[in-house]
């Protein structure tokens, strides 16, 4: 009996991601959730600009490619057009928290009934490793070659905490995928974020703290350890909003 295989909601296209890039794990988790909920035929995904720009080739559901940062606005249009369909965006940190922050906050503030998968790896990967809004203090990138200096480059943005100041969001959770247990938890959160939408509960966002071995300049294994050592102290895992749990 097959106990683990590639989910059906992924196409046969080979991921273009670098060796050890956790985008592949997160893609698979989203696809597993789509399979388990039996919603592939009713789902419309919105791909970002960034490393995951080609996500539209990988997910087997209908897909729309967005301009940089605009995925939540496009998802809003799709959902308003087809309220019975499941609409998700898949976005990186530059896309969601820098150029697209206005769309992110406003979509969350409206409580738009969509699901957002937010991949935070603290760097711009596709363009070759520049500073992201979520880059850590002291983090060396191509555009912070002496380490991110808060005096001139500001502080990293915690998206879940920021969105948790809003009334509307239904569900905000930060997870990571740096070990088997955490991958399992990440999947649970992603599944909940999709289920919320199906049940009409409103805006759900799962932030996945992710690794970029190539641009962090580490082996894939070391990058996963770096998540524990450096990323999670800045970005603590946990649920920042779950209206189901509120009395």
């Amino acid at each position: 009996m097959v106990v683990f295989e590639k989910p059906k909601a992924l196409t046969d296209k080979v991921f273009h991601y670098c060796p050890g890039c956790t985008h592949g794990i997160i893609h698979r988790l989203v696809a597993e959730v789509i399979d388990e909920l039996g919603i592939e035929g009713q789902t419309i995904g919105v791909a970002p600009v960034g490393c995951a720009v080609l996500a539209y080739d990988y997910f087997a559901c209908d897909m729309i490619e967005a301009a940089h940062g605009r995925a939540p606005a496009i998802a809003t249009g799709v959902k308003r057009s087809m309220p019975d369909k499941v609409v998700f965006t898949y976005q990186g940190d530059g896309d969601l928290a820098s150029i697209g922050m206005c769309e992110t906050v406003s979509t969350a503030a409206r409580g738009e009934n969509v699901t957002i998968i937010f991949v935070n790896n603290a760097i711009y990967g596709m363009t070759g490793g520049q500073m992201a809004p979520t880059s850590l203090i002291g983090q060396v990138t191509q555009t912070s070659p002496y380490g991110r200096d808060p005096k001139t480059q500001g502080y990293p943005i915690r998206v879940c905490e920021l969105l948790a100041t809003l009334d509307a969001p239904q569900y905000l959770e930060r997870v990571t995928v740096n070990n088997v247990k955490n991958v399992r938890n990440a999947k649970k959160a992603i599944k909940k974020a999709f289920q919320n939408q199906i049940e009409g509960k409103g805006f759900s966002l799962v932030e996945v703290v992710s690794a970029c071995p190539t641009n962090w300049g580490m082996t894939p294994q070391k990058a996963l350890e770096w998540i524990d050592e450096k990323m999670l102290p800045q970005y603590p895992l946990g649920c920042y909003r779950d209206k189901d749990q509120e009395v």
Partner: peptide, 12 residues
């Protein structure tokens, strides 16, 4: 579960 590229199928 940790494979980013869906390389492995597991049967039991």
């Amino acid at each position: 579960i940790m494979c980013p590229d869906c390389v492995i199928t597991v049967e039991r």
